[in-house]
Design a protein around this nucleic acid. Structure first.
Lengths: 343, 343
DNA sequence: TATTAGCACTCTACTTGAATGAGTGCTAAC
DNA sequence: GTTAGCACTCATTCAAGTAGAGTGCTAATA
């Protein structure tokens, strides 16, 4: 048996109907649907076929049909034409608060959640290489030093260092030179204990605290401030009856709150192809256990060459794929634009 | 009618029993409870009195009694003796990850949530005065400057400034002097447009971009990075049947996710009296609408003179007050200690 | 006088069974 | 190939009945 033209039409009708209502769809409903003029009996026959082919499922004998993961997948891959969503207001909201990138991304998560009524996840961009661009040690007061490290991509790290005895200005100057000579241009991963040891030898003879200072700087440098993850709209999950099982919903919200597991989701192959890097996971396809009953759509934005971040939307399997994908596409274009301007 | 010794004993028994089970407590249960040897009939009479006095409530005619807000209040105020909780493991967990204060506080929220099974809120400390301690402008590369502002309490702010044309080292030096002369020692609130204008006049004549730079610095300085709020264990809410009404639970979790409304809760009078600033809100007493069916316990920690932050626990009214208060007291001592050491 | 035993009463929660209705699969007719 | 029709299935709803927990009141008791 094969998927002919009519079966596809019927399947599409079933899915669209189910997306709207969340209820199993019966043959009578479809027979009255749109342009295909068939009796419910005929539809029933076709539905039996579609079920045999694995595109739809019957929750129990006398219920209508609902799409299977395979059915959704077909829908997403072939039957969907992008629905464009109004991003105008969204754009406005975004730009208002967008002073720092972090805030911008938080805002993105929030606006997106409010607009779609799904849960959203946004990651800060991942810098593949984190080369040290610049290091500076400054005296704040007699016993406190401030170490500032600027990485490629203008990520600034700083660390306060408290020393037991005052340090001479001259020593600080020397340390600055040593630090920059040794570390500038290196990737964070290249900075190891051996290197620190060499610096210590180089700086030996000034004071005993130098060693402490270098350790502190090394620590600050190596401190992984990994990709940050912002979430929003977790409670939207509870709006969908099919996800509102207390046990499961709780787990899902916990995942969003905890954020650790989300890495898996947001780290998957980042490639920005024709489709703006939009990826759809349905049911079991997601790498996160607690989302097995959901659908997840992720998109990739680009800050500059090689620096990518992700935006994800989590909702029920019957999420409005067209709208979500359309919205994400627009949003990606928007974000790319904003970052280009900022640059 | 008055609360005599026996009535108090019975009330206490009712409340403690209810805290454990979450079910209305009947007279028979109490008659078998602990040291007071009375028949269920006697208890019934007393219960009728207690109800008349407003300390307990009957959900319906043939159910046992549950404590009213007034009952809980009496319990918290007079009948509770602090239960000390093992904070040893907690201490360990805390110190492990506590490199930066932010991380420490996040960790506090999390550990507390896991240990108590309630939702938790932690705020970063609020600095009453934010005096500028130190400002420095550094050249990162030809067109990029980094402004670093250190405030009292060692809060570090930084801002990248991109300029159209390269700036001479000498100019940067001058600017640094001007910035420090004008701004050091001032409170953030004292820095206004007039002052910026004066600086601009002072610096006029170098290059046109100086004005831009000063504006950027001014902006960075005035950027309110207000008290941050961390939450954890929001999903614990769902563990308590009496809060597990989808509508209400959703609102509550949303409040925790959104965080804005939490300010109200965490901003209330901070005074660290005999009781380590521990405050208990029961039901309607809380300033946050979505917590009307909960109890909230907040405690205040101190980083240094005049610099306070808060820790809050949100749970059902039948929360284990003794344990929570005890734990918070210990935690506060612990935190005070940690900050003393760090200092 | 305070306490208690006992009993009638109330109310919820649970179970049961019947009615309802949505939806199916199959067959025979068109 | 399509459709009308019918028997069948199963979730849902509702009412009625039952069990059990708990109360309030009264009368007996210490």
């Amino acid at each position: 048996m094969q998927l002919d033209e009519r079966k596809i039409k019927i399947l599409k009708a079933i899915i669209q109907n189910y997306l709207e209502t969340g209820e199993p769809v019966g043959s009578r409903t479809i027979s009255k649907y749109g342009d295909l003029n068939l009796s419910s009996a005929t539809i029933r026959n076709e539905m039996a076929d579609l079920e045999e082919l694995g595109y739809i499922i019957q929750p129990h004998t006398s219920a209508g049909r609902i799409p299977s993961d395979k059915g959704y997948r077909l829908y997403v891959d072939t039957m969907m034409q992008d629905k464009v969503m109004e991003v105008e207001e969204m754009k406005e909201m975004l730009v208002q608060k967008a002073d720092k990138m972090e805030n911008l991304l938080k805002q993105v998560a929030k606006v997106l959640a409010v607009n779609t009524n799904y849960a959203t996840v946004v990651t800060t961009p991942k810098y593949r290489t984190k080369k040290v661009k610049f290091i500076q040690l400054t005296e704040v007061d007699e016993t406190q030093l401030l170490a500032i490290i600027v990485l490629e991509g203008n990520i600034v790290k700083n660390k306060m260092i408290t020393v037991a005895e005052p340090i001479e200005k001259e020593v600080i100057l020397k340390l600055n030179i040593i630090l920059n000579t040794f570390l500038t241009g290196l990737d964070l991963s290249e900075i190891n204990l051996g290197l620190i040891q060499k610096m210590k030898e180089q700086a030996a003879g000034y004071t005993t605290v130098v060693s402490d200072i270098l350790d502190a700087v090394a620590q600050a440098v190596s401190e992984e401030d990994d990709v940050q993850i912002f979430t929003s709209g977790a409670t939207n999950i509870l709006k969908y009856p099919e996800l509102n099982d207390t046990e499961k919903a709780s787990e899902l919200i916990y995942t969003l709150e905890e954020k650790k597991q989300l890495n898996e989701l947001m780290e998957n192959e980042i490639e920005k192809g024709e489709n703006k890097g939009i990826q759809v996971y349905i049911g079991d396809e997601t790498p996160v256990e607690s989302m097995k009953d959901c659908a997840v759509v992720t998109a990739t934005y680009q800050i500059e060459e090689g620096v990518y971040g992700k935006v994800g939307i989590i909702g029920p399997k019957r999420m409005d794929y067209e709208k979500v994908v359309g919205t994400l596409q627009n949003l990606m274009t928007e974000l790319d634009q904003i970052f280009k301007e900022k640059k």
